[in-house]
Amino acid sequence: MEKNGQNVQQQVLERIEQLKHLFLLGQEILPFLEQLFIFLKEIAPLMSELSRSVFEGSLRMPEATNEIESIHAKTSDATFRILARTEQLLADLETLRMELASGENTGQWAEKVDRAHEAVMDIMTSLQFHDIVTQKLAAVRDVLTRVQNQLIELFESFHRLEIDSNLKRNLMAAMGITEEELQRLVALRNHQPAAKPEVSISQADIDALFA
């Protein structure tokens, strides 16, 4: 009887000990759970911001791709045009040189000189590609800047989360970015001009405006 009483007492004490451990564990885990709840509460809008940034970034990337394709096309066109005109110019000059050397006059000198003049003008006109490419590259830079700025905003939002700084630091590290890098990116962003998307018009439509 007495032995039974001791067993029950022992069991009760063990239960109390277990409860005490559970209570201590609860005390330890409570701040973590609290941080986890804050994190979950704040990460939800951030996740939607992330999808928006990725979505808008994806929309803008074709703009940059189109500009780069346009640069490639304009550079190629100008280069081929200049090459073709240069080859023609060289051939005409060679014919003229030979005719002058042999004293022969086929009566086409004036025509050849005119053609050479035209070729030189065409080569000069084609050199406009230099300025056009510069401006197209500026447009590509603007698109990339806009995408970069959105990502920086995203990182900044993450950085503003009111969660434990260790947890935040670990999460930032998991994303592969340190606080110093974030500050550097923000400083870079603050020195860049903003840009806006646009719709193109043909020279014929422009002419119609002035008709």
């Binding site: 100008a78 646009e198 018009i201 002035f210």
Partner: peptide, 21 residues
Amino acid sequence: GMTEEVLEAVKAGVNNYIVKP
């Protein structure tokens, strides 16, 4: 060569507009 830009130039008072090249 964007529509909005040409209109902006017209509004500012250009007499004509040429897109390079």
